[in-house]
């Protein structure tokens, strides 16, 4: 099998925050009915992670389970293990209405790292989302728009954010983040 490569092969840029393409990240979309306790229980058992509450995420070991919509979860795991996770989910959830797909290679992930205010400011330049700490605390997922494309944002810690977008717009998002974090362009709002 051919060797997997991430969209921008780990490109990075350094401004008032550091923007780095996160390389190969495993991502699995899981869809199903959260109201169905069988679905929730089986997902929790199979992944060892509880189904997160609205806009939240659950973390355990190398994996993260993110709430994306009222019927969609995103599992973030090591790239090489995504297919195994899909296999386990598909087998374990057979008979329960669900969908589990490996979308790792359809997405790009970025890491934005710097000062706490810098990270929020760089993202706030590009998105209409309210990025104040009181509205978007660490560990909460916000799906929004970065300039002209959809993206999901969450803060891993106060000084580190993750951005996930479609792979086809990875170059665009990288350029946006690079431009938004140009030294001297800090809005100093947060």
């Amino acid at each position: 099998m051919s060797e997997a490569v991430s969209a921008l092969a780990g490109s990075s840029a350094h401004g008032f925050v550091d923007v780095t393409e996160a390389g190969l990240v495993g991502m699995v979309t899981i869809r199903g009915d959260y109201g169905n306790t069988e679905f929730r229980d089986k997902v929790a058992t199979l992944l060892g992670l509880n189904v997160p509450d609205q806009r939240q995420m659950t973390t355990g070991g190398t994996d993260k389970l993110l709430w994306m919509s009222p019927d969609e979860l995103l599992l973030v795991c090591p790239h090489g293990e995504a297919d195994a996770r899909v296999g386990a989910l598909s087998a374990g959830l057979s008979g329960v209405h669900h969908l589990a797909v490996n979308v790792s290679d359809a997405r790009a992930a970025f890491c934005v790292k710097g000062t706490a205010s810098g990270v929020r400011e760089a993202l706030a330049k590009l998105s209409p989302a309210d990025l104040r700490a009181s509205v978007l605390p660490v560990g909460e997922v916000r799906r929004t728009r970065l300039a002209q494309v959809p993206a999901a944002i969450w803060l891993e810690s106060e000084d580190r954010a993750m951005v996930v977008c479609f792979r086809s717009v990875a170059g665009y998002v990288f350029d946006l983040l690079t431009q938004a974090s140009k030294p001297g362009s800090e809005p100093r709002y947060f």
Partner: peptide, 11 residues
């Protein structure tokens, strides 16, 4: 009403 987030018109 599904996400509970305040969405801007452009979203």
């Amino acid at each position: 009403p599904y996400c509970g987030v305040a969405c801007d018109e452009t979203e």
